[in-house]
Design a protein around this nucleic acid. Structure first.
Lengths: 131, 131
DNA sequence: TTAGATGCAAAAGATTTGCATTATG
DNA sequence: CATAATGCAAATCTTTTGCATCTAA
């Protein structure tokens, strides 16, 4: 966990933040899932705190928030290498895959005056186990 | 509106379904937005009916459901030409852009055993008006 | 010590469910 | 006229807000 980021700006490194950060290390998760994971480890954290902490991590660019699974937001650690998701329609598992999308961005530039800041790309289908 | 699809299987072409389908013709919208549009035309339809109708249209592949704007789902008419979205962070407008993603799919195939059924690709940034 | 962080309760927003009533085919 | 579709109320689920209390620095 990036303690540097937390020590500046008067931010505090609390045990709740550590717990939540550790939980995220596993895989992309929703607030409810994070809560369950922590409860099993007897590190119960209120859901409001989880929401606020995830928002806080997002602003520090430590995590990313996605909505590809429907109404419920999923959060995952931001990784330095930009990657995309392979989401299994059957078991819900999420695999990461690094892709080179330079060509796509060039296409957008050619076809529109839109100024792209970032993008999201997800593939849905069947993972090796569920095929 | 595709009356053929509705006349088979005992499906019924009701005035609510026609109203909702017309509203979707405008641009991708949420249930609340559809409701507002219809209310202004004095064609008030209950939100439950809108949800059920959109689910029904989805199953007939007449529309697609996305979650790129957060918790609230957006629905848009399915168009035969596969395209992607340019979503303005400032005004929320959605522009469509057709892209050739064959190269991406080939990359996925090379890097994983995942069996891709479909995908979603969205770009976020600033539209020409908001730059 | 003190401002930032947490927990609890309650509100707000999105979606779903149950059931009686309506209206299409 | 049979049953698919609708409307209304209430439930459920996710997220946000307000406020008193706690605690890291």
């Amino acid at each position: 966990m990036n303690k540097k980021l937390l020590s500046q700006n008067g931010h505090r490194l609390t045990k709740q933040r550590c717990s939540i950060f550790e939980a995220l290390d596993l895989h992309p998760q929703s607030v409810a899932e994070i809560k369950d994971v922590l409860e099993k480890k007897e590190e119960t954290v209120d859901k409001t705190t989880i929401y606020r902490t995830l928002e806080y991590f997002s602003q520090l660019n430590l995590i990313n928030k996605t909505h590809f699974n429907g109404v419920t937001a999923q959060y995952e650690l931001a990784s330095p290498d930009h990657h995309h998701h392979l989401i299994c329609n059957n078991c819900g598992s999420v695999e990461d895959v690094p892709l080179n999308e330079k060509l796509l961005l060039a296409q957008v530039k050619r076809k529109s005056n839109f100024e792209v800041k970032n993008h999201s790309l997800e593939f849905f289908g069947l993972c090796p186990n569920c095929q």
